[in-house]
């Protein structure tokens, strides 16, 4: 086994997991919402970028903001529909509604983009870099850099300034926050728009590594679920560390044991953690 290569693979995969999870991390932390439409939102982001490159003839770089915008709008629409349930904190119904939205997005994407697998072509995929025994592409590097940038951005936005304190207030107690005169509905709208935009961004950066298909749905982001739970519900730093850890775990478990059972193994780790510490590993620490 080429240990250095597996290490690099694990770190790249881990950054991809963390980037795909970042929107959901905030969503779960601030709105206590489990979004089972996350996978379909990821799929939509990848396909909007693919469509923008094909139908609008945009270069890869210009297709990214189109997909991010579409993702943000979708997130905002979802939140507008769910506003009443969110303000009531009716978590059970919200969870079911996100499943419904997933079905709608998947059906609509099937109608719009067809059933065939496609490739989101990034010019960076063709650039390979050799570094000692390690081989990687420029796209891999982009994923790593973008992930670090997004996590730093979220960390500082949440940690400092007025917006950050509002989000943290909403996470603690939405009713009290409303009494304090903060527009809670607006905060929720922003959080959802961020979730949609962030997962679309992740899709445009990560999806060029594999073929895309409209039915890929939750399977594609299934590890995100593990990242969100392991990282501690809503902990930004926690989910970055969890993403990296999970990436390394996947790389080495796949190389040493059996790639087919990596997902099952990761989920088996999650179950005792959810049971023993329902808040996740980082629970009790700062919510940042």
């Amino acid at each position: 086994m080429n240990v250095a290569q597996q290490l690099a693979n694990g770190l790249i995969m881990g950054h991809a997991y963390a980037l795909t999870a970042i929107g959901w991390t905030l969503l779960l932390g601030a709105a206590r919402l489990v979004n089972f439409g996350h996978g379909q939102m990821y799929m939509l982001g990848a396909f909007v970028a693919w469509w923008a490159m094909r139908a609008l003839d945009l270069p890869y770089w210009a297709a990214i903001p189109v997909a991010v915008l579409a993702g943000g709008v979708l997130g905002a629409i979802m939140q507008r529909a769910m506003l009443r349930l969110t303000l009531q904190q009716n978590l059970v119904s919200l969870m079911i509604v996100t499943l419904g939205f997933g079905q709608i997005v998947e059906g609509a994407a099937g109608l719009a983009f067809g059933a065939k697998p496609q490739t989101l072509a990034s010019p960076l995929n063709a650039i390979t870099l050799h570094w000692g025994p390690v081989l990687l592409t420029a796209q891999d590097l982009l994923v790593v850099v973008a992930t670090i940038a997004m996590f730093l951005l979220l960390h500082f936005v949440l940690g400092r300034g007025l917006v950050g304190s509002w989000v943290r207030m909403v996470a603690e107690d939405p009713r009290l926050t409303q009494l304090a005169g903060v527009n809670v509905a607006g905060i929720y709208l922003g959080i959802f728009a961020f979730e949609g935009a962030a997962v679309a961004l992740a899709a445009t950066l990560v999806a060029p590594r594999t073929p895309i298909i409209t039915s890929m749905g939750f399977d594609e982001v299934i590890m995100t679920f593990v990242v969100v739970v392991l990282g501690g519900i809503g902990s930004v730093a926690g989910s970055y560390v969890a993403g990296l850890g999970l990436g390394l775990f996947s790389a080495f478990f796949g190389a040493l044991v059996a790639p087919a059972y990596t997902t099952a193994a990761a989920f088996l780790i999650v179950i005792p953690i959810m049971v023993l510490r329902p808040g996740g590993l980082a629970a009790g620490g700062a919510r940042r």
Partner: peptide
Amino acid sequence: KIVLGALLVIVLC
């Protein structure tokens, strides 16, 4: 699929 999902969303919301 859209019909199924929309029913779910419309009823619950």
